[in-house]
């Protein structure tokens, strides 16, 4: 991997993503945790641009940073759950080692198939000829492709919104 603009952008966005993730996992103040989550999600949006998925990058910013992270901020404020210094982590070493083992298993599962077993059939990627946002939009509404999953997703979102209102409503308000 030689040194050029795209490489630099990849490294910068990777560091943003991983730094944000580390901030989420280790933060003391819960509100700062939501800010770190936004940083990490922004890094992923940048990486989506590098992957020539501009539409997904825009959706990432709108849905994840614009909606989900804001919902988290509201939840943090509604529950007054800014955590104290004690009661922060459970069984630190056991869990860190478990996550480490998980990572090693992932690494083995990726490195062996990619660099050992299938090294001969490896071919370089190009950004040419990738699907554009127009193709994505056509695929989502054309009858022969993904229109049914698209409608089901709409139904799911509606049901989830109604369910969230029902769950979060105060039981004392029932009579009003």
């Amino acid at each position: 991997m030689e040194f050029n603009f795209i490489t630099v952008a990849f490294i910068v966005f990777s560091l943003i993503t991983l730094g944000g993730a580390i901030g989420v996992v280790t933060c003391i103040n819960l509100f700062r945790g939501t800010i770190w989550l936004m940083v990490s999600l922004f890094g992923v949006a940048g990486l989506m641009v590098l992957l020539s998925a501009e539409f997904l990058a825009a959706v990432q910013v709108l849905v994840y940073i614009g909606a989900i992270a804001i919902l988290f901020t509201f939840a943090v404020m509604l529950t007054r759950s800014i955590t104290s210094d004690k009661m922060r982590f459970t069984r630190v070493w056991v869990n860190v080692i478990s996550a480490g083992i998980l990572f090693v298993l992932f690494a083995l599962g990726v490195i062996y198939p990619v660099w050992v077993a299938n090294a001969a059939t490896h071919f370089p990627v190009t950004d040419a000829g990738l699907a554009t946002t127009t193709d994505l939009g056509v695929a989502l509404v054309s009858g022969s492709q993904f229109v049914l999953p698209f409608e089901v997703a709409g139904l799911l979102l509606t049901a989830a919104m109604i369910g969230a209102i029902v769950i979060a409503r105060d039981a004392d308000d029932e009579g009003n």
């Binding site: 991983l18 993730a21 989420v24 996992v25 819960l30 990490s40 990486l47 459970t90 860190v96 480490g100």
Partner: peptide, 21 residues
């Protein structure tokens, strides 16, 4: 990168005591 991010997320799920985190 995706692997590292997933392992960090799994570590957060195992490690944190706060449901929001």
């Amino acid at each position: 990168l995706s692997m590292i991010l997933f392992a960090l997320g799994a570590m957060g799920v195992l490690l944190r005591k706060n449901a929001i985190l």
